Every structure is written in C-alpha cells, then in structure tokens.
Amino acid sequence: MGSVLERLAAREQAASGRIEEIREQIAVLACELSQAEAELERLRIGRQVLTEMLAEDVEPAGIAPPAPAARASKRDGRRWQTVPHRSDDPDLASLPQSYRDVLEAMEDADQSLRSVDLCRSLGLGVKAAATEAMRGKLNRLVERGWCVSPETGRYALAPGVAGRMP
C-alpha cells in the first residue's frame, strides 16, 4: 500500500510542478499581450490623430474644427490621462492621481510587485479587468521612466523616484 501512496504523491508533485510552469507561461503571455495591446492602442491613436489632421486641412472655410480640449475621449466620456516622461517632467505632481497612488503603494511595499498585488493594496479587487488595467498603467509607467520591471510581471519604482510628494 505504501508504494501506491508514494507513486500517487510523486504524480501529485509532478502535476503541481506542471501547474506552476503553466502559470509562469501565462504570466509571460499576459505581459506580451499587454505590450501588444499598448502598441495597437498607440497605432490607433496615431491613425486617429493623422486622420483628424488631414480632415482639418480640407475643412470648408469659416468652419473651425472643435478645439482639442473640447473633444471627449471614447472611454466612458472621460478625457485621456496623460503620463509625462520622467525626463521631461520629474515632478510627481504632474502625474494623474491614480498613477501617484500606484507609486505610493509601490513605495510602501519596498519590493517589486505584481499587478494583482497592487490591485489588492489599492482596494481594486483582483478581477482580470482590474489587474489588466493595472498592468497597462504599470507598463506605461515603465515606458515613461517612473518604474522598472526587474523581471517579467513584476514592477518597482525606478531608481531616484519617490512614491510620495515632499
């Protein structure tokens, strides 16, 4: 009977190992998906801006296009939040509040975090929509120099970045 239990325990351990490998693959793929989605969004915005600029060139005389500040975004009627590059404006106050909250939570943790960890610490829940949105914010912060990604799926403050305003 002991050998059967030992074989069963070995199979269980192998299955657990395979599950962990699959989870790591999912994390890598989720990161790649997030980067591809960000690239697609960037291209869509570029196309939209170019289309608007070309349309402005053929506007009939006397009809001015709406001012950029008056244009609403397509996301729930809210305006897009701009995240400046850290090299352009190193002041934390230039970031939208939601991004400052993320940096503050990262500073409190004092270690690299996953997007799901940040969602938990900010009270956003751990549903896929919240964690993917957080991953998008984190990738944007990395792209703009506010954070670093020391390993796939983990994020930390960039050197010299404080999570709180003085």
Rank of each mutant, 00 (worst) to 15 (best):
I26W: 11
A27Y: 01
A27M: 12
A27L: 12
V28G: 08
V28I: 13
L29I: 09
L29C: 13
A30G: 00
A30H: 11
A30F: 02
C31P: 00
E32R: 08
E32T: 06
E32C: 00
Q35N: 08
A36F: 02
A36I: 03
E37K: 10
E37Q: 11
E37R: 12
A38E: 05
A38W: 00
L40N: 02
E41N: 13
E41R: 14
R42N: 13
L43G: 04
L43N: 14
R44Q: 15
R44I: 03
G46E: 11
G46T: 09
R47G: 07
R47D: 11
R47L: 15
Q48T: 11
Q48E: 15
V49E: 12
L50G: 00
T51Q: 04
E52L: 13
A55C: 09
A55H: 07
D57V: 12
D57L: 14
E59G: 09
E59D: 13
P60W: 03
A61S: 15
G62Q: 02
I63Y: 11
I63A: 07
I63D: 04
A64W: 07
A64E: 15
A64G: 01
P65I: 01
P65S: 13
P66D: 12
P66M: 10
P68L: 10
A69V: 10
A69D: 12
A69T: 10
A70E: 11
A72T: 08
S73H: 08
S73Q: 11
R75D: 07
R75F: 14
R75M: 03
R75T: 10
G77L: 10
G77Y: 06
G77F: 14
R78G: 07
R78A: 15
R78V: 08
R79M: 03
R79Q: 13
R79C: 09
R79I: 02
W80S: 12
Q81S: 12
Q81I: 01
T82D: 00
V83M: 03
P84H: 06
H85Y: 14
R86M: 05
R86A: 03
D88Y: 15
D89K: 03
D89M: 10
D89W: 03
D91H: 06
L92T: 07
A93L: 14
S94R: 13
L95V: 04
P96G: 01
P96K: 00
P96E: 00
S98C: 05
S98W: 06
Y99P: 00
Y99S: 02
R100T: 04
V102A: 04
V102F: 04
